[in-house]
């Protein structure tokens, strides 16, 4: 976790990262990832946030999959500039996106504030994330707007709402928050009724929530 100072976001109730040692992310990157996740899905009255759900762990574990090497994508050059409608046109793999993206954000934040992103108070973290989302923070290495929208935010949502077997959605809490029954996948008796579904979620491992 980030070095704790009085300005750091308050510690979360049950940080899923306490008993997890990241394989891909360095300590500085891990601090960024935990801090960013805590702002993208905050821990609030509606339920646990991304950190409590284990999202940083999900993302770290995803870094060990073929997807993170770009193995599911066409990655032959030349890599040309194209209109946004033509989708991803970068040679960077997800691993490289995280490595370069976190470095670029931390450098920009450091240059402006003298501190890494993780050491900023939450309101300032939010302001930085909003500027990054809008494309207002630039890097020579990559598009930070694309890193934010297509990787950091997208993977955070995947981790929060994916099955717990991938490391996130601890105790199926994200499913419980929205009323999603997970993999129950059997609604013949309920489909014609526009009523609340009566059962809690089930995970791929058969655990009931």
């Amino acid at each position: 976790m980030a070095a704790s100072t009085s300005e750091v976001a308050p510690p979360t109730a049950t940080p899923a990262s306490n008993d997890y040692a990241p394989s891909f992310f360095t300590p500085a990157e891990w601090a960024f990832l935990n801090a960013a996740c805590a702002r993208l899905i905050p821990n609030d009255d509606n339920g646990p946030g991304a950190v409590e759900l284990g999202v940083p762990q999900f993302i770290d574990r995803q870094m060990g999959t073929p997807w993170a090497e770009g193995a599911l994508w066409y990655m032959q050059g030349p890599f040309l500039e194209a209109k946004a409608e033509f989708g991803y046109q970068s040679a960077l793999t997800p691993k490289q996106q995280y490595r370069l993206g976190i470095k670029a954000i931390d450098e920009a934040v450091q240059a402006a504030t003298g501190k890494p992103f993780a050491a900023l108070p939450p309101t300032e973290q939010d302001a930085w994330l909003k500027r990054i989302e809008k494309g207002e923070v630039k890097s020579d290495a990559l598009s930070l707007k694309s890193f934010f929208g297509s990787f950091l935010l997208k993977n955070t949502m995947e981790g929060a709402f994916g099955d717990p077997l991938y490391g996130g959605n601890k105790d199926m809490a994200a499913w419980k928050m929205i009323g999603h029954p997970g993999v129950r996948a059997d609604y013949l008796e309920f489909v014609a009724e526009a009523k609340p579904y009566p059962y809690g979620p089930v995970s791929l491992h058969g655990k009931r929530g």
Partner: peptide
Amino acid sequence: PGWGSAWKQAVK
């Protein structure tokens, strides 16, 4: 919004 507490409330 695409994230944050307001997003979370809307999803719920």
